[in-house]
Amino acid sequence: MAKKILIAEDSATMRYLIMSTISALGNYEIIEAANGFEALRILPREKVDLVITDINMPDINGLELVSFIKSNPNYKSTPLFIISTEGSERDREKGIQLGADAYLVKPFSPEELQTLVKRFLT
């Protein structure tokens, strides 16, 4: 069965880019969440194998999502990447402290993302 990847990101274009980059790797089922709330709703419903979240989202921020996932026994072991932007080192640092497994800094290359996905999902 194809592995499931949850992408929480409020920019549709970013989601599309991430999706097409991952799809190039092989058969993954990609679930899109346009905000943190959607992600919260998807998590108990789907057995997700990897979460990729943006830090800057309008309802709850990515750090809050990381804290939620990594402090919950059900999701704790799910690998999680955060996507941050140049200049937000402190927020990224906090994400790692909260348990994020890896981070990407925009703009990132397709290879960076693909390497990470491969590392955690194979």
């Binding site: 409020d10 549709a12 346009a34 905000n35 989202m57 309008p58 309802d59 921020n61 809050e64």
Partner: peptide, 17 residues
């Protein structure tokens, strides 16, 4: 942690996205 605009407006506009 925080997010300031969990208002209805924000929720609505996100849905539309």
């Amino acid at each position: 942690p925080a997010r300031i605009e969990a208002s209805e407006e924000a929720a609505a506009s996100l849905r539309s996205i």
